[in-house]
């Protein structure tokens, strides 16, 4: 559980860490768009180069990024199998009797794998370098223009920040309960099926009980301090764009344009 790194904030001191969360979110969106443009091998090479250098610039180790990709490996394997069975175009690469693997199946899978990996790298770059609270402030600000059409920007941001705030707490809680039940002889790794079900139950019931308890306490605490959604409020932390943020935005815009040109013009 302590090895769960997807979406974890890493407190290093880098240029990327210092950037404005709004700029980072926008830049991430642009890079995500360019990842989905069909720009061929060269396009992906350019993207990979840019993204890997961003990762290194953020002082994140490639090992950390690799770790956050691990949960996706299973999905990739699954996609690979489906592609191999479903795609029957291109030329035959390998044939086992009547069973044939086509070139497009392999290439499609590779494409998806590369795309997914790049996407995870980009999002990791955002979440590992931005404090959860800054991230929600950024989201709130970016959603503000949509308020006119009835998007509850503040409420959404509040919900996200509460959810993010409680992820580590719940993980800690889970660990605590797991340990407590382990000393009562629960073994999550071994045992028969019904023992395993019991083990999971002994974990989930207390977790739910405490999660509801926490939710209620939090709601009471918020109300006790006069929290009312939709109220106009000031902020302690003011977000400010500065030069490096504009550089980031300009850079990612350039990237989208270049990749788009590679995809549609060349």
């Amino acid at each position: 559980m302590g090895n769960f790194v997807l979406g974890k904030y890493l407190p290093y001191d880098s240029v990327i860490h210092k950037m404005d969360p709004r700029a980072k979110i926008l830049a991430m969106l642009m890079v995500l768009v360019s990842i989905f443009l069909p720009a061929g091998y060269l396009g992906y090479a350019v993207l990979a180069l840019v993204i890997v250098s961003t990762v290194l610039l953020a002082k994140l180790s490639l090992k950390f990024v690799w770790k956050s990709m691990k949960p996706m490996l299973f999905m990739l394997a699954f996609l690979m199998v489906i592609n191999i069975f479903a795609v029957k175009t291109g030329y035959v690469l390998i044939a086992f009797g009547s069973f044939e693997i086509y070139s497009d199946a392999v290439f499609n899978t590779l494409y998806i794998a590369v795309r997914l990996m790049l996407m995870i790298m980009v999002t990791t770059c955002l979440t590992a370098t931005t404090k959860p609270l800054d991230l929600t402030l950024g989201i709130e600000d970016l959603l503000k223009p949509f308020k006119k059409i009835g998007v509850p920007a503040h409420e959404i941001a509040m919900m996200i920040s509460i959810a993010l705030r409680f992820i580590p707490t719940l993980i800690e809680e889970t660990e605590r309960i797991m340990k407590a039940q382990a000393s009562r002889g629960v073994d999550l790794q071994e045992g028969k099926l019904n023992e395993k079900i019991m083990a999971v139950l002994s974990l989930i019931v207390p977790l739910f009980v405490s999660a509801f308890q926490r939710a209620e306490d939090l709601a009471n605490a918020m109300e006790a301090r006069g929290y009312a959604p939709g109220q106009k409020r000031t902020r302690y932390k003011q977000l400010k764009f500065c030069f490096r943020d504009f550089v980031l935005l300009a850079g990612s815009l350039l990237l989208v344009v270049v990749i788009a040109l590679m995809a549609f013009v060349l």
Binding site: R184, G185, V186, S202, V205, P206
Partner: peptide
């Protein structure tokens, strides 16, 4: 772990069964 019993801080959160009897039986049965 069957020889060393560890009671955590605020151990009440480890309760999960429907009845106290079942909860108390959980450890020994494990």
């Amino acid at each position: 772990r069957s020889h060393v019993g560890l009671v955590f801080q605020f151990p009440e959160y480890q309760l999960f069964e429907e009845t106290i009897l079942k909860d108390l039986c959980f450890g020994p049965k494990n």
